[in-house]
Design a protein around this nucleic acid. Structure first.
Lengths: 193, 193
DNA sequence: ACCTGAACACCGTTCAAGT
DNA sequence: ACCTGAACACCGTTCAAGT
């Protein structure tokens, strides 16, 4: 009756994250995860219910890391500078974990979606910072403008859509300035009106 | 020596587009395409070199359709209203062809990328309209702001990331206004400066 | 209690054999 | 010239059999 556990749920998830970054989502197979942790594929099912739960666990883990990186970028003193620092941290995260980033923002089956609490914690700092600029009534619209732009930019940048010409860093800085300015002016006109 | 062709490259590509929209990119298998056009999977390889070329053909076909929809939305009279009409047409296209849209903007293997001419023709009207607002030096940065925001918004909307609360149509209108205004002010300050 | 090989129903693709 | 079944190397997942 031995059969001591050769692996664990945590080891499976963290190993799978490494494989995801190295080989992309299509290269992340149960067989490769199994080989990496030192068992055969069927044994994984003693620790995790299947590929869907593995994907959800990876996504929750990455979401938490991203949220922490964004929170660390804002010092809470000035909303304008916080927002541009958050945007830069977002881009830095996408650059350093491109496959995880792609997975996080790709359309995904319902069973892969992270728990709402995990997702909300990660976006909290963005909504709070936008709210400081636009005021509470426009906070959600403002946060959606900011996240749409930032995610769209990174999505296109990682997909290689910006390869035609022009300085991509400069285009990002231009976008940060324009979006931040737009949100500030919403808040200002509200204060004035 | 009969063996009359039971299908054709064009039929294969257009049938594959329908399967893509109905079943998503993972549901688009060579076997399903073959069954739909009335042959067995190996016969497809007499008409198209493999799945990669099929994907590239689909992507080029969708790209052309999207470009035509965007061009049709602009009448060339007023750049501000053209830009918001283009944005609305972009969203309408994504809503009516969600799976094709996802495929178009997803990271993709090099062999799936549409020819540069096809891609450039599709974005031409966006760059021209942005250029009319910002002036030529800022046209590319402006177009990148606009396309990043619009694609990011649709990507998040189609992925179901906006389900928490709030009116999504209103958030889109807010974004169109803010981005268009930002681009206009770049052009104005340029004229003034 | 966990691990394993064998099996099942799928993929994309190749190829020799049919007409 | 095109179509076909069989085969190959892969998937994810199940399950009976081992310890």
């Amino acid at each position: 009756m031995p059969a001591p556990a050769l692996t664990s749920r945590d080891e499976i998830v963290s190993t799978a994250r490494q494989i995801l970054e190295r080989e992309g989502v299509d290269g992340l197979t149960m067989q490769k995860v199994a080989r990496s942790v030192g068992v055969r594929a069927p044994s994984l099912y003693k620790h995790i219910s299947g590929r869907a739960e593995l994907m959800r666990s990876i996504i929750e883990s990455v979401t938490t890391d991203l949220g922490n990186a964004l929170s660390a970028a804002a010092d809470g003193e000035d909303a304008v500078s916080d927002l541009s620092e958050i945007a830069r941290a977002f881009r830095a995260f996408a650059h350093s974990h491109p496959e995880s980033y792609r997975l996080l923002f790709a359309p995904m089956p319902e069973e892969w979606r992270p728990g709402q609490e995990v997702a909300l914690t990660a976006v909290d700092v963005v909504i709070r910072t936008c709210s400081a600029l636009t005021g509470p009534e426009r906070a959600l619209d403002g946060a959606r403008l900011m996240t749409s732009w930032a995610h769209g930019f990174l999505s296109l940048e990682l997909a290689g859509s910006f390869r035609i010409e022009g300085d991509v860093d400069e285009a990002f800085a231009f976008g940060v300035d324009q979006v931040t300015e737009a949100l500030s002016s919403v808040g200002t006109s509200r204060t004035r009106g």
